[in-house]
Write a protein that binds this DNA or RNA. Structure first.
Lengths: 207, 207, 207, 207
DNA sequence: AATGAATGAGCATTCATTCAT
DNA sequence: GATGAATGAATGCTCATTCAT
């Protein structure tokens, strides 16, 4: 139990520092200091700084899964509503755990180069529920969508766009005094609306 | 002439390394090595590492302006087509000058904290043509859009999402073997379609 | 125990280099090399080069206090003998701990600009016993000395002159083959004699 | 003529910077900047930084000679008054040309290690007029002074003490709010008084 | 005579990592 | 299990000096 406690404290500290000060300022010294242990102790639980980062990634993936693969969402019957709930969950995850989001989707690939591919893949299962919802929608409305994978990635990219813009604090820097909540709402509706329209169009062209 | 050559080589080297290896690995030594000069020479052309980074920012902004504020685009009469041309230009800029895009829109603001705000603002003028196109569209079709600024940022965020995902090379890593061209096409149409639909909706509600 | 050993070794090394090679050549690398440790270890014991220098100052002040504020001297009743003992102690201190003397009184204040003033002041308490001795002398012999502070500083400056000349090794360089002991003896007697004479003179003028 | 002009400007600049910013901050770049020429030009007139420093020393010696070997002083008949005039001239030189004084008598010997000995000696001829004056005094008053060289160095050391204390700005730092003029006056009279008294004493003991 | 671009060596400092205790 | 002393390598940056022009 004890063991786990310190390990957890270390991860917590690292995560806290990562988003506050950035990866460049994330040092083993500071992590130890914040976790309330010695630098040496870090190496009892993690092989290296990279190992610690990987553990952080694993953790971030779990958190994402918790939110995104929420059973409550899966049971929403109407695919469009499900898509909306997924989008909401995704954005919420990003804004609630900015550090996790940063690690998973923003951190430079270089830092994660040697992160085992199989563990990496897990994070991107998030596309599956999106694909499913789109398929569902297409099927139910008897529409067409030639490449659903493309549609899903495109949908995801729109969500990623809004989250990463908000997290980077660029809007604030730009003095773009825009209400975040309204922006998120707008962006999600824009993505879903655009997606559905594309399906319809495909349909129209055929006729 | 020579003078300019090395300065250019340094910027080129820094840019190359920045995107390939990330900001954390961007060191003056490596820049010098890649530029084929001594570390000291870097300081002949730039005050500091930060200064070099700022020069890179300036450069990226110019490149963005070239593509995005292209007069040919401005003269497209139909606002929807103009919007599409702007979106294309934005994505093209990002894919053609990935380093510039990375510097402008992905690099964490932390690293550029002291970049003069007025110079920073220039980059974000890109919202203006988008705002104008939306306004145009709304006006011509006699629609309503309560907060055009929100709509513009939302539109931008969709473009940013697709570009940053492509640049991060995440798709490749994910073995998401998706055709980039199709994806871009899809994403742009999704964004425009979603945007226009949101306007119509507003209209519908009113009636 | 060990801990203190290396700290001491570092101070010793820094002191040695400071006097032998001058402040300009005092580098962390050389200190580490001479102390027999790595450069990084220096920073385990001292915050910075400046911090190390300050520790050296503190140390020098302690050594000065030991010699100069010797209780045995304070109890000498006859003020003139006490003055002589003080002068001896001062010069002895300078010659015994040349590095300490150099740090305290020769090193340019520039290098120590941020040394806390209150700690600095301690070193200059040395004027107090001199002032007291002069006051005593004046009182006992019923003489006059309008500005005792001036007299004390003047006396101190004579001692400083002889010590700094000897320490700088200038006499040797000049081939001024002069017996150091005789020179010190002479200088001290000259200072005391001159001081007392000035008092008498003041007296004479008044009458 | 031109040639001389720039050389002079360089020396002037170096001297100015030397005292203002200290030897540690005396860089070729800054000298060139202040002298209004390029760094390379410095090497047209001086072999190296050390060479420039040596030229500065030569210059300082000349200035000292001008003041100290002033014919007007040499012609003062009364040896005691001559001694006083010499002391005054010495202190004046130090306070008027602090940079020169610093170079000649305070700069760490290390920096001057390779200054040609014969040129070094010139600076210390200053002892000759002092020796002569003392000899004169002894002779005229029929006194004794076993080692006149010791007496002269001792006298010189008193003057050096007061000048170096004032130049280092220590008194100011100590908040020893002492009138400089009074202090100098006092110190010189103390030195002369002490010196003469020592001669007398020698005499007394003999009888 | 004068420049200024270029550099290698060096600066203080910080880093992730190791290991005896 | 935990520490903290120790380190080699790397960081951004400055230096005196050289040399083609």
């Amino acid at each position: 139990m004890r063991r786990h406690d310190l390990q957890e404290a270390i991860l917590e500290a690292a995560q806290y520092l990562l988003i506050r000060e950035g990866y460049g300022s994330l040092t083993m010294r500071r992590i130890a200091q914040r976790a309330g242990c010695s630098v040496g102790s870090l190496y009892l639980y993690f092989d290296s700084k990279e190992g610690l980062l990987f553990a952080l990634m694993d953790r971030a993936q779990e958190r994402l899964a918790e939110r995104f693969f929420d059973p409550q969402i899966q049971t929403i019957d109407a695919p469009r509503e499900r898509l909306q709930a997924l989008a909401r969950a995704y954005v919420d995850f990003g804004l609630t755990y900015p550090e996790s989001y940063e690690i998973l989707f923003i951190l430079h690939p270089r830092e994660l180069a040697s992160y085992p591919e199989e563990r990496m893949q897990r994070a991107y299962r998030l596309l599956d529920p999106i694909v499913e919802a789109i398929e569902d929608y297409v099927r139910r409305h008897d529409l067409e969508m030639p490449d659903i994978r493309v549609a899903a990635v495109s949908f995801w990219s729109a969500l990623h766009g809004i989250v990463s813009l908000l997290l980077a604090g660029r809007l604030a820097r730009l003095r773009l005094e825009v209400d975040h909540e309204a922006l998120i709402e707008h962006a999600i509706r824009q993505a879903i609306g655009g997606l559905c329209r594309l399906m319809r169009r495909k349909d129209n062209r055929k006729t």
